[in-house]
Design a protein around this nucleic acid. Structure first.
Lengths: 217, 217
DNA sequence: ACTTTTTTTTAGTCTAGTCTAAATTAGTTT
DNA sequence: AAACTAATTTAGACTAGACTAAAAAAAAGT
């Protein structure tokens, strides 16, 4: 059995090792808002359980088993987020904290049935890929920021680069939801803002927004 | 904030006070498979938080606030059970352990939306009433055990008296699901077994079963 | 009413997971 | 390479929530 705390650490280590391979004590501490000394303690426990490779002062990596556990937690998190948005009509910026709790519910059968119920989605409402029951992640969906599109291009919104709450709320307000089809009507050279055509209405967004919105390739 | 442990105690005390009003330390210990000394410790903490009225050696009752909390946990438990059975196709005997975890997820918004999604059900798959968001419980559904019916009577299965796993599995196997309409074709005097007509098929059940099945009035 | 049994509480111990403060190691600068 | 700085670990303390064993109170039996 795994404690909730152990799962939080494994997930954090996984996320941090996406960029570089090895992760430092301080990085983990910051990610979990804990003190470095607490992290050291836990890393020893995780190493005893063979979920991480840990060498004093040298940082930490996940073992195969540790990575598999992390992927299953991420799978649960993203499936629950999908459920909350598509079945319970939550906005995509409201679901994170609830999914953070639901991801620790312990039942493989539950999560496989939820997966089926949702139609085996490959991406969550933020556009992040959902690992399958074996931990396999679909090749990243081909996408580019809106700012790479040219006048006349079309595409579908499939995610965001920076998922902060304020930004997601803005998108929601403007009707820029996941799955919305957009059409670049105009690009204004002087400030690189984009005039979009969406369902026969026009909307102009700033350069900043255009760099943050991911459009299906 | 409440810990999972505190919630488990409040729920147990609520369930035990359905019959008698006051509950003893030993009863709680047995219900939670803990030692009496652990229960005493926790009762003091719950009393400090004004969730129970506790007098040494004299047993314990819930305060208004404590009862309200217990009802909300029961509400969550039963709504999740309903979700698992009606949306994810679990059998009614498979859902208890999972609901036991889900009932501690902390989000009022989540549970209200789940309630709406399920169509504001008044009873869970076991036939137990679901408290509403104010903790109100609908008057118990009028029901009687099958053993009270006479030859020729009709009714709908709405619950069970004893919800042990073996029994529920038996029912499932025989096609005796919640909501199934039954018709008493014959009662055999020599052993009080019941011959039922269900969707034009016949099925005989023992006296024991007939006392355990609740039929809508 | 006195003794025995049962129930409940107290006192002290243990573990997981956090913290602070001090010590150690690694990295960087001169 | 010595000295300083930053990162990491160690040592020791704390809390919640469980436990065991012993003491105290209540209930039951004679």
């Amino acid at each position: 059995m795994r404690s909730r705390s152990e799962e939080d650490y494994l997930k954090a280590i996984y996320s941090l090792s996406i960029k570089g391979s090895s992760t430092s004590t301080n990085e983990i501490a910051k990610a979990l808002t804990m003190k470095a000394s607490s992290v050291t303690d836990m890393l020893k426990k995780l190493a005893d359980k063979k979920w991480v490779n840990y060498i004093k002062y040298k940082g930490v990596t996940l073992t195969k088993e540790g990575k598999q556990i992390a992927l299953q937690i991420i799978r649960k998190h993203r499936l629950w987020e999908t459920f909350l948005v598509t079945n319970l009509n939550f906005k995509w910026d409201e679901v994170h904290d609830i999914a953070e709790q639901l991801e620790h519910i312990d039942s493989i059968e539950l999560i496989n049935r939820l997966d089926k119920h949702l139609g085996f989605p490959k991406f969550d409402p933020h556009g992040d890929p959902i690992p399958d029951k074996n931990g396999k992640i679909q090749d990243l969906r081909k996408s580019q920021p809106l700012s790479d599109l040219k006048k006349g291009d079309k595409g579908i919104i499939i995610g965001v680069v920076d998922g902060t709450s304020i930004f997601l709320r803005y998108l929601d307000n403007e009707g820029l939801n996941l799955g919305t089809e957009i059409h670049v009507a105009e690009i204004f050279d002087f400030d690189f803002s984009y005039k979009l055509k969406i369902n026969n209405k026009f909307l102009t967004v700033s350069e900043r927004v255009s760099k943050n919105l991911l459009i299906q390739f």
